[in-house]
Design a protein around this nucleic acid. Structure first.
Lengths: 236, 236
DNA sequence: TCAAAAGTGTTGAACCTACACCCATGG
DNA sequence: CCATGGGTGTAGGTTCAACACTTTTGA
């Protein structure tokens, strides 16, 4: 079989760019400027160009949309979507990447991304028709992946700024899991997990309360032991 | 941007078909009949056809190679590989699927698959140049996925025949993890995990020893609590 | 009766949840 | 001084690895 005879198709990447803002897991969505689905909200994405890997393309789009330095972010390929009818323009296979970001002001997003806005993931998922194409399914998969990853990996730190307190880290877990965690037990678990957190020796300027120690993310990627999804009974 | 202007490329699926045979994790490999890499071992694969999803294509190839009824097997998309130089024929993005099979005689594999043979995954991984294209990396990822999945999911049962003993199930774990497990503790853990194993009431005809109870796979897909990678000290 | 494999009981260590309590700061 | 949030101690329960022990078969 010669390659010229094969059904050709376009390959795209789409990005689920997630952060924790305003006590919620939020996703960066754009408003589509052109048909199909003109004016509809969608995950940022673009086509794979010649000579580029999928990861290159994901990084390129992520830089375009956020203006951030991509090298220190968590960007991970999740799944390829291939339903023949998923895009009315023709046969397009799209590969979803998930990017996890701290809550930073996005430096003047370049490209055609002027309309990029943060939206609550929970709200978007509650409206199955609000996102274009099969992006609702993509976001569902991305959020589920983020939720699971918190238990077994150290990715929660990628939602935090370079130096953070344990309470900030706990807030990431609480927001993404939708559960309150016992502050004291959480503190012990994460400080005991090897290579997860590195103390900087510094402390926060406090606003009413004992100042908190600041930590940086450690070299570990897997979490031992895993953090379980304990639900705290003192929840209001 | 019109789709006609986009860089087109071919999309393929490759299959890591894994089973436990002869006390080893083995993968089904074919000998390539045509260039490139003619005569070299490779994972089975093929191109995505018009109107087909990636999953359709993976099922089609799996049926071709094994002749088995695909509906009861564990087939899961793992990763898309996109290095521009990965195939000398041109730009081909390939999506890897992992299939986990019990050790069954393969009913007369049809298609061009006459040369399909089982090979030890460990041996293949020890020879980074033995597999064509980037299939060594694919197999590495597939084996790592299988290993991790055993801890957190019930996929181990897909390596077993429809009815199996706990010792057979344990052997799956021991072979894939490369570690001996304590038979008594293993027995308790898997029988206690909810919806993992369903007793059939039947017992094996024994060959020197107490007959073992036979089980079927239960409806659970996640394993609670997870099986840890405990290394047994009585290892020879 | 012995060997072999299945399966159960038990013990001490590790860990976890819940909560009491102490610490450090601002007002 | 008190309020607020950070952080530690600890008791009681659960789980787990390790291994002794019982059960059920074939030879």
């Amino acid at each position: 079989m010669r390659i010229q005879e094969l059904p050709q198709c376009a390959v795209a990447v789409d990005l689920a760019i997630l952060t924790v803002r305003e006590q919620a897991l939020q996703a960066l969505v754009i408003e589509r400027a052109t048909p199909p689905h003109q004016g509809v909200a969608a995950l940022p994405g673009g086509f794979l160009l010649a000579g580029e890997t999928l990861e290159d393309a994901a990084h390129r789009k992520l830089t375009q949309e956020t203006g951030l330095d991509v090298t220190h972010l968590h960007v991970r390929q999740l799944h390829a979507y291939s339903d023949p009818g998923r895009d009315p323009r023709g046969r397009i296979v799209s590969v979803l990447y998930v990017a996890l970001l701290p809550d930073l002001p996005l430096p003047a997003a370049g490209g055609g991304a002027a309309t990029a806005t943060w939206r609550s993931a929970e709200e978007l998922l509650a409206q199955p028709d609000e996102l274009a194409f099969d992006h609702h399914r993509m976001l569902t998969d991305a959020v589920e992946h983020a939720r699971d990853s918190l238990s077994y990996t150290t990715v929660a730190t990628t939602f935090c700024r370079p130096e953070f307190t344990i309470a900030e880290l706990r807030s990431v877990y609480e927001v993404i899991w939708g559960a309150r965690l016992d502050p004291s037990n959480f503190h012990r678990k994460v400080t005991r997990a090897e290579d997860f957190l590195i103390p900087t020796g510094k402390k926060t300027a406090t606003d009413g309360g004992r100042p908190a120690a600041l930590f940086r993310a450690g070299p570990a990627t897997r979490l031992h032991p895993a953090l379980l999804h304990e639900r705290h009974p003192r929840t209001p």
